[in-house]
Design a protein around this nucleic acid. Structure first.
Length: 277
DNA sequence: CTTGTGTCCTGTAGGC
DNA sequence: TGCCTACAGGACACAA
């Protein structure tokens, strides 16, 4: 499932392939993945003819900036995938197809059809995209620090993991990196947020930033489920460096304890009872 | 406001 | 072998 490091990897891969190219054709194969405007026809008409000026990212959203102040915002949700393919190639589960002026095709592939593409005017986000407006600071940017995290955890009795997954608190963080950050920080995912000591909050802020940066460095996490791939079809490699996710029953690499899988905040959760308190 | 639960969606894994 | 069900989860809707 693409989280901040995966979307950032996708962004970096797409940037040189898309900037300066014009979208000469749009094909919507599955209208319900168009989140805005309401009709696939107006989406198609609004995108066609536009030139990509920049490729950005906000949290887990990928943002293609067009001329004329419009943006194509895409959220990949759980199984979404963006691939640059040849003109003849039609990937399985392709939902939207953008034909580019250089003859290549940007294909929005989404087996579960939960991902969405939105065409909006810059800064004017529709109801369906209000998550973009309420989104917190990027954990890898300077605005995210111990003070911010402490202010968000204060007085909250929800499990600390639930707050890491809250995009208003830690944008871009999803199930994998939340578990990995908590493991690096030595904090049990189910701990009520307000019970964390200042040193633990501080460690968590540091480790969150660290694990996201590592995820980017290793080009994201490709697990068997979800099948995240980079736009050129290559896998990421952070899956080889996961400390707890997917390792239930195996030994913790730090303390030798047995990694467990439980359920926290309604999500499958991996942690080590030996070194996470 | 805060917190927990249900919903969307479909490929895959597991049971019999 | 093949059918069926449960499960996975990000973001949002909604209830208490």
């Amino acid at each position: 499932m693409p989280e901040l490091p995966e979307v950032e990897t996708i962004r970096r891969c797409l940037e040189p392939l898309l900037v300066g190219r014009r979208v000469v054709g749009v094909r919507v194969r599955r209208p319900d993945v168009v989140g805005h405007p309401t009709s696939a026809r107006s989406f198609r008409r609004g995108v066609r003819g536009r030139t990509v000026h920049a490729v950005g990212r906000r949290g887990k959203y990928l943002v293609l900036e067009f001329d004329g102040g419009r943006e194509l915002v895409t959220h990949l949700r759980l199984s979404g995938h963006l691939a640059v393919v040849e003109r003849r190639s039609v990937p399985r589960h392709e939902r939207i197809r953008y034909v580019l002026s250089d003859g290549k095709v940007l294909s929005f592939i989404e087996p579960r059809a939960l991902g969405r593409a939105y065409l909006v005017e810059r800064g004017r986000y529709p109801r369906a995209l209000r998550g973009m407006v309420s989104m917190g600071p990027e954990p890898i940017a300077p605005g995210f620090n111990v003070r911010w995290l402490a202010s968000q955890l204060r007085g909250r009795r929800a499990p600390v993991k639930a707050l890491l997954l809250d995009q208003r608190v830690c944008c871009g963080v999803g199930n994998i990196y939340a578990d990995e950050a908590l493991h690096r920080a030595g904090v049990k995912p189910a701990r009520p947020a307000h019970g964390l000591k200042p040193a633990e909050v501080s460690r968590l802020a540091d480790k969150l930033r660290e694990v996201l940066r590592d995820g980017i460095r290793w080009c994201g996490t490709t697990l068997g489920d979800g099948r995240y791939l980079r736009p050129d079809g290559r896998a990421g490699s952070f899956q080889h460096r996961l400390a707890v996710v997917g390792r239930a029953g195996d030994g913790c690499r730090r303390c030798g304890g047995i990694v467990r899988r439980t359920r926290v905040a309604g999500r499958g959760t991996y942690y080590c009872p030996g070194c996470q308190k």
